[in-house]
Design a protein around this nucleic acid. Structure first.
Lengths: 206, 206
DNA sequence: GCATTACGCTACGACCCGTAGCGAAAGCAC
DNA sequence: GTGCTTTCGCTACGGGTCGTAGCGTAATGC
């Protein structure tokens, strides 16, 4: 987040509610205007704050939209559907559902594109979106191990690489399906995709 | 392309060389400035044409960059490495190599992001980049069938869906690995990825 | 009360956009 | 050659956004 007023600090404290209002206004502007036509002046107007206030909290459009979009993915949870395959399918479907929302479609790829030339921004995306959601993979694996579907303690280095691969495949495929192919990542598609993914992981593991 | 001067047409013909110069200048500007700081005035200056000429041929930044980036992917070829798996691995590696180039990284995701709110642009991307490269999948399958690695004539509807799925998985995973995770999609990674993909397709097929 | 910080507001130069208007150039038909 | 048509380069323009500076005011802690 952006506005943590340092603790032992004098002076007027920041209006915490303004942060939420600004991020909500950013998402609303993303829906109505998309990335390229979104202006900070308009966001400030929607949020009911002065443009200068917005600039005091965020460095620019990129950072603002990253924070606004990151909140969307906090809705993700790991459903308990009884098996590893079904759990994963559930998460992928949730992810696909979030990507149907215009504020996610319009914002996510744009900041990723900007991050191609901005290391700090890419790190911000990784920290507040990607790595933040890797908890799902870890939780899923832990639950599967408890169920006995996976061996308890695989090689840590190999395991980390596998987590990264899974993430790239899941997020990449869903995003490409949704935003480039522009076809719905519906239940049927998600089912076929996770079947290929899990079969491949199982077969290629040993 | 943009500048096909209609055949039975009178008047001064368009300078065909200008198209190539403009697209090359666009790629150069993408490398140096990235998407957001790229301006059409600057591209025109680099290409040695007037800004008005550029606007007569392309509707705007989005369309221009799509065409400039699309040319990059025409370099893709289907190598003959002896087996379906090796061929696919070769193509994926070529794709990953193209994505290491800054003009591709900076341009591709940006236009995809813009396409989220622009149906015509998305269609242009599909036609001039995605569908245009599906030739590789078709050629690979044909060659594999000739080798006897695949049955000669699968169900057409199911086959088309599988091609789409392969495309979403390959392009999505490589792009996510390269641009979001910001890790190199090198030979080792590509090898592991294609192994999972092909194992999954083989196991989930029947 | 006093220092300090946040806030809203206004104004500003800088930049880019996309278009209009013009004269000149380069083809084709005759 | 003479026209006709279309492209090209150039200049200029209004409109919009950017990011910042400056100022007076509001809200805290000491």
């Amino acid at each position: 987040m952006q506005s943590r007023t340092p603790a032992g600090r004098t002076g007027r404290p920041r209006n915490a509610a303004a942060d939420a209002a600004i991020l909500a206004a950013t998402r609303a502007a993303l829906v109505e205007l998309g990335w390229s036509k979104l202006t900070l002046g308009d966001v400030a107007l929607r949020a009911g704050v002065a443009k200068t206030t917005l600039y005091r909290r965020w460095a620019g459009k990129n950072e603002l939209v990253v924070d606004a979009v990151a909140e969307l993915f906090d809705e993700l949870t790991l459903p308990d559907r009884g098996s590893l395959a079904a759990d994963i399918e559930g998460v992928v479907l949730q992810f696909a559902t979030i990507l149907t929302r215009p504020e996610a479609r319009n914002g996510l790829m744009a900041v990723v594109a900007e991050a191609a030339r901005d290391d700090a921004l890419r790190e911000r995306i990784r920290a507040s979106i990607v790595d933040r959601q890797k908890r799902l993979v870890l939780a899923g694996r832990a639950r599967a191990q408890a169920r006995g579907e996976l061996p308890p303690a695989p090689d840590t280095g190999e395991a980390a690489r596998t987590v990264d691969l899974i993430f790239d495949m899941v997020a990449g495929a869903v995003v490409h399906r949704t935003l480039v192919s522009a076809e719905p990542a519906d239940e049927e598609w998600v089912h076929g995709f996770t079947r290929v993914l899990l079969s491949g992981l199982a077969a290629a593991g040993p």
